[in-house]
Design a protein around this nucleic acid. Sequence first.
DNA 1: AGACTTGGTCTATATTGGAGACCGCCAGAC
DNA 2: GTCTGGCGGTCTCCAATATAGACCAAGTCT
Lengths: 118, 118
Amino acid sequence: MFAPRCPSREVFAELVDKWSMLILMTLSSCGPQRFSELQRAVGGVSRKMLTQSLRNLERSGLVRRTVFPETPPRVVYDLLPLGRELAELVEPLGRWTERRAEQMMAAREEFDAAHAEG
Amino acid sequence: MFAPRCPSREVFAELVDKWSMLILMTLSSCGPQRFSELQRAVGGVSRKMLTQSLRNLERSGLVRRTVFPETPPRVVYDLLPLGRELAELVEPLGRWTERRAEQMMAAREEFDAAHAEG
DNA sequence: AGACTTGGTCTATATTGGAGACCGCCAGAC
DNA sequence: GTCTGGCGGTCTCCAATATAGACCAAGTCT
């Protein structure tokens, strides 16, 4: 994974992504979701990036996309076993970030203050 | 973390990054490293991105930067407790990716083949 | 008829990433 | 004395990527 052109690096680089991780966490904690539900849940994601990230996750076998041919169209996304595995590793990361966010923000302010005198 | 302008989202978006994660994993498994060692270890990283990622990690209190005023200069980076915590969550992710990389590559080929007829 | 909904795609612009040149500093070679 | 080289960056330029926002088809409701 530390080699630039290795498959695992390639896969890693695409999974380690803000939107993909938030999508995985949402699907994991809220169950199957349709496109617009995901867009609401993952605040700030554009339709383009949501589509792109979901396609990636689908392509790599982490997520399943199911289309119900109704009008208006209904498309539901849910986790496949592989995606559930990954989600279980990503969730602790999310919880840790929320737990430590304030501490890190404080560290930043301190750092910025110390480097402002320049 | 699911809200766009929340501190935890901001922090999350910066930590969830290819280079930062590879740096954390390297420092965790290889111990303190100097700049050029890190650049060799993290294959494909440019000096610019390495500097930028390290600054970010330093600013948020995950990594410590120590300068030895010699010539040629020597700068050593190592994990602070906060960084060690995060590294312990990131490592399983890395191991999982390596374990599942082939499976995901196979899924991709299948997906691409299925969608080529269009 | 006209407005509204869903799950996208397309386009234009802003942001970001990577490649490679440049820098100061000193040691050792010539 | 000058020339070269290593270290740890920074700077500049160009390509790739992200975001914002318009547009779309098809059917439903008013």
